[in-house]
Write a protein that binds this DNA or RNA. Structure first.
Lengths: 388, 388
DNA sequence: CTGAAAGCGCTAACAG
DNA sequence: CTGTTAGCGCTTTCAG
């Protein structure tokens, strides 16, 4: 590709005039405009301002332009001025790909989508992605998203890193023995996760303190005077699920309240399974029947509420119900649901900060961070909050 | 950076051995391993297999490697074989950045996130992004996501295109007079939109046929025997909102059913505003009081259902209610909500196909595509569907 | 303080 | 059919 300077020379006009004629950024006498257009046509030139053009206009070498623009070497005030003016006049923006190739750094962070099943709580992660993009950009990076299959998720990660598409990754939806984490650790690829895996692996992550969250809501229920408090958790074995259940025990222990084994039920994360668990709880003899049911997800809490409603049991008055996640639905259901909100923006910013520490090889003060969720009290536990 | 060949020469071992020692992909005698490691150390070499290494191992020029790997020029069967074997032995993956710089094509498409407000229906777009990533990858592209401000959204788009970060864009959440669309059209940047803008602009888009959707659900209500059918739409002025309202009129006209002006209400897209509109409808004199209420969003339908429930009016039996979007909540509410589902995967694939047509300068047969949504009948209109 | 020149990894004319 | 070579746009030694 020819340069702007060559086009200008052929048309016998100043470089700046050639630029203006081609870009339409300023009026140019018709005759000059014509000859510039003809010259560009002849050379097969399409407007792409490069560092060479800026150098030519400023009358300096391309190295000097680079120095002046990046402050990467001392440049006299006068030349700097000339360079900046030339760059501005040509509306110059450096082509990141040149820089990428030379530095062997893409300033791109990979983020893999798993397949979001219909009805699963995706909205939270959606907002996470937004804040992640935002946070990453504050460091001059961008997010490259990709879809990975459930069967062999590591393939996509390996491919992206081997082809130098990205500098590192951010993971969400982690699980114990997450193959992606294992691969990235072994391959020494920089990454940071939103979510834990297991206690053996040492990698940078940020997670919601689910234990603390359920503890908070249980304390809230105790304060309201409940003494027979039930919990519907997920089947044992998930790190975050078990932590949430632990918070329930911790709060009851601290208050020296009795825990009856029949009060702790396990169910899949679906409203139907939670409704069934609620039915079992309500079938307990009246002396044991709970007056409050804490759930480890909003989805489950809604199942419980549906069941109670269908049995004519008034949620909030007769039985208190709480969830976890503060999904958009939580304030739309009837009565609005008490729940725990994850501070998404904060979580995203922190996980990005961890990744940046890895990428820039800055030792982070802390590689594992737990963030406490925020208790949002609504009418499902506290009828005083009921709207008229 | 030194090459693998130089390391091998210094260590006085074959190239393949040097690779194996460095990568650990195969066992190498301890002595050789040591000298390779020492050589790499001395040259400051870290393992990065490039086309040069493959060429050296195969004993051909780098051009031949490129030809063989890309089938971009005829290569004899024997050499091709040698090249492929060398590439496989070294686990070679081309560095996309070299290609990017030379071709001046990034094979990246930009997708901008707007700020998702809490409680707004984001889950649909979340799934869209997943399918978009999937579709884009089938063409060998990836998605680069970025956050843009509400005030000057074009800045982010301009920056990305001027710095050669992306080849084009996919837009969602379009509106009439969308400044992004105007900018991209003027700047002749390739893009395709999920959503329309206005009738004056000619650009590639895919959209849900909202008119047809509401027509479908209105026909469904007519079939169920309703004759007094109301509609709650958005305030006039939005392209998609007005189209949905039109579908209501079309269905009633086709059935020669009366339309009473009091039956058409306009409200903001919130459950509260919709509930208020429902209250007005229910306050009509009994001869005019509708027996069915179609809403242009699930959010509004839920507001209507909440209102009816609170007044003791049984949704599905006394008054039918329908929504639009088929958000996850739709099947969780009580009773489950009849609504219209947007075929997200299909929409995403089509909008990506349109963009690819722009990028590869293939004239698309159709630049504007409307996709009919699918009617999902649930108990909120058809009590027979009620679960026991 | 500034410029010439090398080179990041790859593709593609052009010769042979 | 294969190799030589010239870049793509940028940063960065190394001289002057």
């Amino acid at each position: 590709m020819a340069t702007l300077k060559q086009v200008a020379a052929l048309a016998d006009v100043p470089i700046l005039t050639a630029y203006q004629a081609l870009s339409g950024s300023a009026a140019v006498p018709q005759a000059q405009r014509q000859s510039v257009l003809a010259a560009a046509e002849q050379l097969g030139y399409t407007l792409h301002v490069t560092i060479k053009d800026v150098a030519a206009l400023a009358g300096v070498s391309i190295a000097t332009v680079s120095y002046a623009l990046n402050n990467s070497a001392p440049v006299s005030a006068a030349t700097r001025q000339r360079v900046l003016e030339a760059a501005a006049a040509l509306n110059y923006r450096p082509n990141v790909n040149g820089r990428t190739l030379q530095a062997n750094k893409t300033r791109l962070v990979g983020y893999g989508w798993h397949d979001v099943k219909r009805g699963s709580s995706a909205s939270f992660l959606d907002r996470f992605t937004y804040w992640m993009a935002q946070a990453v950009e504050s460091y001059g990076y961008h997010v490259l998203t990709f879809a990975h299959s459930e069967e062999s998720p590591t393939d996509a990660y390996r491919e992206l890193i081997q082809t130098n598409r990205v500098d590192g990754f951010i993971l969400a939806h982690t699980n114990r023995n997450d193959v992606r984490i294992r691969y990235l650790m072994e391959a020494r690829v920089p990454f940071a996760a939103f979510g834990r895996a297991n206690d053996r692996w040492d990698f940078p992550y940020v997670d919601v303190d689910g234990r603390r969250g359920v503890e908070l809501v249980t304390e809230h229920l105790i304060e309201l005077g409940h003494t027979r408090i039930a919990l519907i958790g997920w089947p044992e074995g998930s790190l975050s699920g078990d932590a949430r259940v632990q918070g329930y025990f911790d709060a009851l222990d601290a208050a020296a309240l009795p825990v009856h084994s029949a009060w702790v039920r396990r169910a899949e994360n679906s409203s139907a399974a939670a409704a069934a668990a609620a039915a079992e709880l309500m079938a307990l003899p009246s002396a044991l029947r709970p007056t409050a049911i804490a759930c480890v997800s909003d989805l489950m809490a809604i199942g419980v509420m549906n069941y109670l409603n269908s049995r004519g049991i008034r949620v909030g008055y007769d039985v208190a119900v709480s969830g976890f996640d503060d999904e958009p639905i939580a304030e739309l259901v009837h009565p609005p649901l008490t729940t725990l909100r994850q501070p998404v923006d904060d979580l995203a910013a922190q996980v990005v900060a961890l990744l940046m520490a890895e990428l820039e090889r800055i030792p982070a003060p802390q590689r594992q961070i737990l963030v406490a969720p925020q208790l949002i009290v609504r009418a499902s536990t506290d009828p005083k909050r009921q709207l008229p």
